[in-house]
């Protein structure tokens, strides 16, 4: 779905001025732990998170994340938004929870990005 439609669906607010309303959002990954985002995503994706530290943008930049949706009403500081703008990543915030945001997006066709969950004897889920 288009970024503009995501904004409407999540009753969100775009936090920087670049017109990305036509950008297609078809994959997403949701996590607050940036370590997990770094370790477990395996392709370009939209990131849904409640973490608003500057490291979010640095991680997103390194991973070629295409857009970030901040949930639970979290709004990153202006310096973080400016950094996102500088590296060309559109950012949006919504008051909806991560669960609700993910549910709405999934119901509208957005799917999990390719990822590699932790697995293996003694350390991860066996199924």
């Amino acid at each position: 779905m288009k970024f503009a439609d995501v904004m409407e669906l999540l009753d969100g607010e775009i936090l920087e001025g670049v017109d990305v309303s036509e950008m297609i959002i078809d994959r997403a990954y949701a996590a607050d732990l940036l370590s997990d985002v770094l370790a477990l995503t395996d392709e370009r994706t939209t990131l849904i998170t409640g973490t608003i530290s500057p490291q979010v943008i640095r991680v997103a930049d390194i991973l070629n994340v295409i857009a970030i949706i901040f949930v639970r009403g979290k709004r990153p500081p202006k310096s973080v938004v400016t950094y996102a703008q500088r590296v060309g990543i559109p950012v949006m915030c919504t008051k909806k929870t991560m669960f609700e945001s993910c549910g709405l997006l999934y119901a509208n066709g957005v799917r999990p990005c390719k990822n590699r969950p932790v697995s293996g004897p003694g350390s991860g889920c066996s199924k």
Binding site: D32, L33, L34, S35, D36, V37, L38, A39, L40, T49, T51, S53, Q55, V56, R116, V118, G120, G122, S123, G124
Partner: peptide
């Protein structure tokens, strides 16, 4: 090197770190 094992301080977790994946992720 065990996934999920972490000695990160509490304040680091608030910033999104300390999932116990760092060294494993470097290796992967």
């Amino acid at each position: 090197m065990t996934p999920g094992y972490s000695t990160a301080p509490y304040w680091a977790a608030n910033l999104g770190f300390g999932a116990g994946m760092g060294l494993i992720n470097m290796e992967r």
